[in-house]
């Protein structure tokens, strides 16, 4: 696949350099539901104090993996250790914060009652009123849970995950159903958690979220890790891994352009009317491309030089067809 190998390969000792156990260490994890294999030999390692994003299409096995780490699901093979303990150990409960995918309140409960209840389980909880205000729930304190919007329920769920001041939080699709302002708030919170030394493992299928938040991205598909690394590592193969993208009339013959460009550069019409030049893009290349356009009598619109996006990598690895 040409991607760099995962920075920490299987078989390394389960202790990070500062001799604290790793935050999460999953190896050879297999989870089956009947005849369907949801997680298929997955390896995952997360250092403390980092943000790891588990990225994958729907049904890739993200939630199964996270719920196994949280201790909510059993598994068929492999080993899962969280903060140095086997997943599901009762001793882990006070130390981890969990934001499940959807749900998490009595139908008739009010936001402050629910958060107070969860806070009462912790020795040193955050201030409940403050946390509700931060998450923009101060105005809906009297509203029963079932009448909160999806985004408001998600924010309450996030508050419940954080209120106990955990060492490690699992956020399963934390921004699903949120408006852009709330999404931005969650991003700010994750940044703040990280700078205060909290380890964050989140799942998402949003590339920009993974790219913005994560120190380490693990792309999974069909229950297997297909790529792993920092966002920068995943999006760059090397210094010559760039793209020049522009729009022009569809169906132009690019063979003359290929001939005019230095060796090693590839030209293709990526989709109808969108042309892509891949390789080391320097000013000379841009000049050659615009000159060729002039020869063809077309104007290169939306001309854009960039490295590959995480989305490109993701689609390359997991395919472009829609999953059921």
């Amino acid at each position: 696949m040409g991607l760099p190998p995962p920075p920490l390969a299987l078989g390394l000792p389960s202790v990070s350099p500062n001799s604290q156990p790793l935050a999460v260490e999953v190896s050879g994890l297999v989870k089956r539901y009947g005849s369907k294999t949801a997680v298929d030999g997955l390896d995952l390692v997360q250092e403390r104090g980092t943000v790891l994003a588990l990225l994958g299409p729907n049904g890739a096995g993200k939630t199964s993996t996270v719920e196994i780490c949280e201790g909510f699901r059993g598994y068929d093979a492999g080993s899962v250790r969280v903060l140095g303990l086997p997943a599901g150990s009762p001793a882990l409960r006070p130390r981890i914060g969990v934001m499940p995918q959807g749900g998490g309140g009595y139908p008739g409960v009010r936001a402050d009652e629910m958060l107070n209840l969860v806070a009462s389980c912790a020795a040193n909880p955050l201030d409940v009123g403050w946390l509700l205000d931060v998450l923009g729930l101060g105005g809906v304190l009297r509203t029963p849970y079932k009448r909160l919007s999806g985004g408001q329920q998600q924010r309450l769920s996030l508050a419940c995950a954080l209120v106990g001041r955990p060492e490690l939080v699992f956020l399963d699709e934390p921004t699903a159903g949120m408006d852009p302002q709330a999404r931005r708030l969650v991003w700010d919170l994750v940044e703040a958690l990280k700078s205060d030394g909290v380890t964050v493992l989140l799942t998402t299928h949003l590339m920009d979220e993974a790219e913005a938040l994560a120190d380490h991205v693990v792309i999974i598909d069909q229950g297997q890790v297909v790529a792993s690394g920092s966002p920068v590592e995943l999006t760059t193969h090397g210094p010559d891994d760039q793209q020049l993208r522009f729009r022009a009339r569809a169906g132009l013959d690019t063979s003359l352009l290929t001939a005019a460009l230095p060796e090693g550069l590839r030209v293709r019409e990526a989709s109808r009317g969108t042309y892509l030049v891949e390789g080391l893009i320097d000013p000379q290349v841009v000049s050659t491309v615009t000159a060729w356009c002039a020869q063809q009598g077309v104007l290169a619109e939306e001309l854009h030089v960039a490295k590959r996006s995480l989305e490109d990598v993701f689609l390359e690895l997991t395919g472009r067809e829609l999953r059921s």
């Binding site: 006070p94 629910m114 040193n124 955990p166």
Partner: peptide
Amino acid sequence: TFAPGTFTPAPGRGRLGRMLFVHART
């Protein structure tokens, strides 16, 4: 923005009596 140290981990289990009281009351 959040003041540094706002989320510094301080995990631990709350007092059982209080947990039971708040749960039952809820």
